[in-house]
Design a protein around this nucleic acid. Sequence first.
DNA 1: CAATAATCGAGACGGTACGTCTTGTCTTGGC
DNA 2: GCCAAGACAAGACGTACCGTCTCGATTATTG
Lengths: 210, 210, 210, 210
Amino acid sequence: MSSPAPRRPRDGGQPPRGRPRSRAAEDAILKATLHLLRRKPLCEITADAIASRAGVSKATIYKWWLNKNRVALDAFLSEMREPSPIPDTGSTLCDFVEQLKAATRFYAGPDGRVLRQFLAEGQGDAEFLAVVRERFQQPRRRALRVLWDRGLARGDVRPDVDFELVLDLIFGPMVYRLLGRHNPLTDAAAEAIVRTVFQGVACDPMPPAP
Amino acid sequence: MSSPAPRRPRDGGQPPRGRPRSRAAEDAILKATLHLLRRKPLCEITADAIASRAGVSKATIYKWWLNKNRVALDAFLSEMREPSPIPDTGSTLCDFVEQLKAATRFYAGPDGRVLRQFLAEGQGDAEFLAVVRERFQQPRRRALRVLWDRGLARGDVRPDVDFELVLDLIFGPMVYRLLGRHNPLTDAAAEAIVRTVFQGVACDPMPPAP
Amino acid sequence: MSSPAPRRPRDGGQPPRGRPRSRAAEDAILKATLHLLRRKPLCEITADAIASRAGVSKATIYKWWLNKNRVALDAFLSEMREPSPIPDTGSTLCDFVEQLKAATRFYAGPDGRVLRQFLAEGQGDAEFLAVVRERFQQPRRRALRVLWDRGLARGDVRPDVDFELVLDLIFGPMVYRLLGRHNPLTDAAAEAIVRTVFQGVACDPMPPAP
Amino acid sequence: MSSPAPRRPRDGGQPPRGRPRSRAAEDAILKATLHLLRRKPLCEITADAIASRAGVSKATIYKWWLNKNRVALDAFLSEMREPSPIPDTGSTLCDFVEQLKAATRFYAGPDGRVLRQFLAEGQGDAEFLAVVRERFQQPRRRALRVLWDRGLARGDVRPDVDFELVLDLIFGPMVYRLLGRHNPLTDAAAEAIVRTVFQGVACDPMPPAP
DNA sequence: CAATAATCGAGACGGTACGTCTTGTCTTGGC
DNA sequence: GCCAAGACAAGACGTACCGTCTCGATTATTG
């Protein structure tokens, strides 16, 4: 869904009573948060800074969001362009290469910096991590299913490999680099990862798993 | 040296003057920190808690460590068993499977919980992340070189694949799961990852990268 | 008029337009405020609490009253019984004793608790203090004039003493006790005060003031 | 006592451990509070304002004082000159007149403004009121005992009148005026009050209380 | 054995963010 | 035009933690 996830989403069917929630305030909050997210690490952004930059009361923030991480996540997702369109080059390998290249550029840029912070915050806040998964990671992973299914249909890829495993094999190394910073996030690396995942590192065909 | 990295290591050649550093205090600090690390997330551990549990002054902590994350890292590393001995089953694939299984059990246990916190803290503190890399990740990665080299010597694995890439392909998916919590950290997953990395996901032999 | 002092009294001559002011709302507000006044100190009563207990919007409160202190004052005065009837025992002293006893019982009871709060709030809000004076204190003081005049007519009391001074001499000590809580608010104290004010504390007749 | 009343007074006999409390911080806090007390009503003074003006952390304030009222009381008492010396004119009446005049000037000036606020705050905080009584009111009341005793020794005043009652008769009217603002706080009023308390308002000697 | 020097425990300190609370105003739609 | 509902800006509250500091006591080496 394109709507942000307010703390108390409108769900009942009855007509809303009272003064309606101010879109202006919400927009200002998200905009201010984005502005700050682009300039400093999440852990250095304060609720007061968001409020004052947005010209908004802190209470308004805490009324609609559980904490500043949730605000930041909503801000981040609100500016997300559509996930890069699923490529269709005719080659499953090339499709995944394109996909991982796109992801890598994303990771390597300012958005990647923010994503790292989200994953970091998620390590101490399981609920937040789950939300990041649901709202950022899973939609993108699910979208790739068609790519894999196309490969299966074409006979490009092995039908005995779990799709979840494939995703982790392809994105895991890059996420590992995103967080560990021990190796570069480049197009070349993306291509090498996908090619190797497709081809394997063994010299000869392997015996099937027991 | 395997000793912890004090803030101001004694390095000059002249004999130390004044009261020598108290080993007892250092041990108490590390022990107290470990105790707390096992019970709560790093971000909820306070320097005061460490000091009071160790029966030590906070100043003593900050005299020898830059901040509490560094204390925690030292405490964590001080109790690290020797990295699991490099297996030698005769099969490179099996060696890597064993290795990833060991790592997975580590990740899945209490130490993994702590490691996640370190990676998380590292996202907002590049210097700390670098230290985690140097003192935890790199030694373990380097140790695996022999494994890969054995495989190369045997002709088990493709010589055109970068070793750094291999490590990321094998450990990346599991680290991704460690941090993303979207898929389980099991022996079976470890085995599937390594087998698939070796064999590839493509049906047919792929053309070599250009 | 004995009606409460609304923020915007209807005073123009033109017939009111639109929906008339709801008596029910006003009554509910005063009733709810009284309920709360009996249970907790004024400074702990919030406008929200009044509104929600009255089933009324906060805006309605602020539409008709300047602030919650004014609401509380109106609520307090609305339940005031008629000021105790001016006694006429034949003795001016006894009349004042009866009067101060009645006041003392008032001060010592729940109403006294509320009155203390009003005086307290008045210390930081001169306008409010003035209203308390006008609507509570002055009517009661004025009513006692007849008592003093009767005493003068009878020759019971000295004609050279200012009536304002007398009131302060008689009620001041008790108000002092009400606010300072250093001495009890009892009938005995009331009687002692009045008797001593009448008789004086000096042993011998004093020379008149110059 | 001349020492302020810290939240945790030094009481044990053991030598103090750790960094000693900073006199400079305490002085700065009291000085800043006084500065603010002279410029605005107590209820408009914030802990943040005191802290920032004193160049002190808010935590330091809350470490030593229960709340800002207590800080203000300490600040107020710290600048109190010695209570005006007990006069000895030879006439008990004149002594009391001088005393009440001094008090009246005090009440009518900036200190009186502050004292009013303390009494006001005390109405919603019994503990605070008790402290105000103990540290401000009672010492001053006790000091007047000698005055009354001198009067008794001289035979100036009636021995059957309770001293507590006398104090309330003399100071009550003025405190009443201080808080009610219905009559002026002047030297003339002070003199009239004392003379009338001494002489009584009745025309003739009264019959003794039954 | 005294002087020197560095460490230690204790704990106060300045700074800063937190998330909550209350006030009084404003904005809807319904009556 | 009045109302209930309730969102809103403003800003104080008291708490928590960080990393630094100050103190007196302790424990070594050096003279």
